[in-house]
Structure formats: structure tokens, C-alpha cells
């Protein structure tokens, strides 16, 4: 079973894109479950997923990447016991950071080492709004890109080629080695590629032995 997490600022199109990825995985005969982690205790994303017939559970009370990391393990275990999917897609809040997500998933993998693997983390970058976001929430957006295993530049059908080049340069400047995918839920671009990455991409192994120290050094000072 794979746990595949995405990150990306609010409104970057994660829910809409993941619905299409889930449909693609279903069409390949794979069983998919999703976990959404929305603001507070009132969840919109879960409802959006469920109207498409996608089995969805929610985690509330904080952000998976830090505050409720332990809850992810419990939720994944419950899904495995009741449904045994091939892939669990996890959509955290738009302020989640990849390092925290990797740590949360690693804790879960540690509890189920023979059953569960962590897929590469895909950060969604909103090609339409990136400039505004870099002006207002630069640190968060940069962190999401720098710590990503792959970056999906999303909504590419809605921007000019010039803007697309500029966003590409920005992403490569921050994370030169990152795998870059261009996507649009509207046109279907990138959906098969992200689905492939989630089920066949090299599993992420995250060392938990000094995870807290590394996290504190980076964010706690």
C-alpha cells in the first residue's frame, strides 16, 4: 500500500486535481482512499471528493504536518483495516510543509513497515497566482517548493507561455533537481504522470532517528 501526499498553497488546485488522479488510478483497477485535512472541524474538501464517489476520511483539529501527526497513523491504520486500498492520497491543509508531511508519514510507515511505502511528495504551484503569493507568503511557498520531491506547476492552460517560463525558472531556481510536471485538471495534462509517480515512483525513506532535531533546527529558532 502506498501513502501519497501532496502539498501546495491554498487554492492551488489540489482537491480538483486529486479527484482526477483518483479516477485515473481507479481506471487502472487500483483501490484508492483519500484523507483530507481541512481548516478546523468543518470540511469542504471531503464533500467535494465524496460527490465523485471517492472514499474519504478527514483529519481535523490541526495540520497533519505538525500538530496532529500521530492522528495520521491512526487514520491510515483504520483505512487499511477496513478497506485495504492500494493507494491512500493525502491532501493536507494549504499551509503544510513537506518536511513535516514526510515525518508524519514516516511515523506511520514505521508502524506498518511491511505494508506501507511513502510515495514522493508533490508540491502544487499555482501558475496563475504565484507572483501574488511570493509577495505575501513567500517563506511558506518557497519552503513547499524547496522541500518537494516533485513540483506540479498547475493550471498551465490558464497562463501564457511567458508566465509559464517564469514560473519554471522560479521553481528550478529554488530546487534545481526537482522533478517538474506541468498540469491542468481541466485539460487532463499531468494527471497520468502524477498517478504514475504515486504508484511507481521510488519510495521515500525518511530517517526518523534525528527528525525532531532537524525540524527544530530548521523551524524552531
Amino acid at each position: 500500500m502506498r501513502i501519497a501526499q501532496v502539498t501546495g498553497f491554498l487554492g492551488s488546485g489540489k482537491t480538483t486535481f486529486l479527484i482526477e488522479v483518483a479516477k485515473e488510478l481507479n481506471s487502472r483497477g487500483l483501490k484508492v482512499a483519500t484523507i483530507v485535512n481541512d481548516v478546523g472541524h468543518i470540511n469542504v474538501d471531503r464533500k467535494c471528493m465524496e460527490v465523485h464517489g471517492i472514499d474519504t476520511m478527514e483529519i481535523s483539529g490541526g495540520c497533519i504536518c505538525c500538530e496532529v501527526q500521530g492522528t495520521l497513523t491512526t487514520t491510515v491504520t483504520n483505512i487499511y483495516m477496513s478497506f485495504k486500498p492500494d493507494v491512500i492520497l493525502v491532501e493536507p491543509t494549504g499551509v503544510a510543509i513537506p518536511l513535516g508531511l514526510k515525518q508524519a508519514a514516516a511515523q506511520t510507515v514505521k508502524k506498518m513497515p511491511k505494508i506501507l511505502e511513502q510515495s514522493p511528495i508533490v508540491t502544487f504551484v499555482d501558475a496563475m497566482r504565484i507572483e501574488k503569493l511570493m509577495n505575501n507568503v513567500r517563506r511558506l511557498v518557497e519552503t513547499q517548493i524547496i522541500e518537494a520531491d516533485a513540483v506540479l506547476i498547475n493550471k498551465v492552460d490558464a497562463v501564457s507561455e511567458e508566465r509559464l517560463r517564469s514560473v519554471t525558472e522560479l521553481v528550478k531556481g529554488l530546487n534545481p533537481e526537482v522533478r517538474l510536471i506541468y498540469g491542468s485538471a481541466r485539460t487532463g495534462q499531468g494527471i497520468k504522470e502524477v498517478a504514475d509517480l504515486m504508484v511507481n515512483g521510488e519510495a521515500v525513506v525518511y530517517d526518523l532517528s534525528d527528525a525532531e532535531d532537524r525540524f527544530d533546527k530548521k523551524y524552531g529558532e
Partner: peptide
């Protein structure tokens, strides 16, 4: 540093977002 403190530092430093949700 406990989990709660870490969470607060991370998110306060990065987002400055006001959040509210209602179910009516």
C-alpha cells in the same frame, strides 16, 4: 520544544492567514 510550540512557530512564521469556517 514540544509539538504544540513547534506547530505555532512554524505556521505563525509562515502564513499570517486569518481562517474561519461556518456551517449554516
Amino acid at each position: 520544544m514540544d509539538q504544540k510550540e513547534r506547530q505555532l512557530l512554524t505556521h505563525r512564521a509562515s502564513d499570517e492567514l486569518g481562517k474561519f469556517s461556518m456551517w449554516i
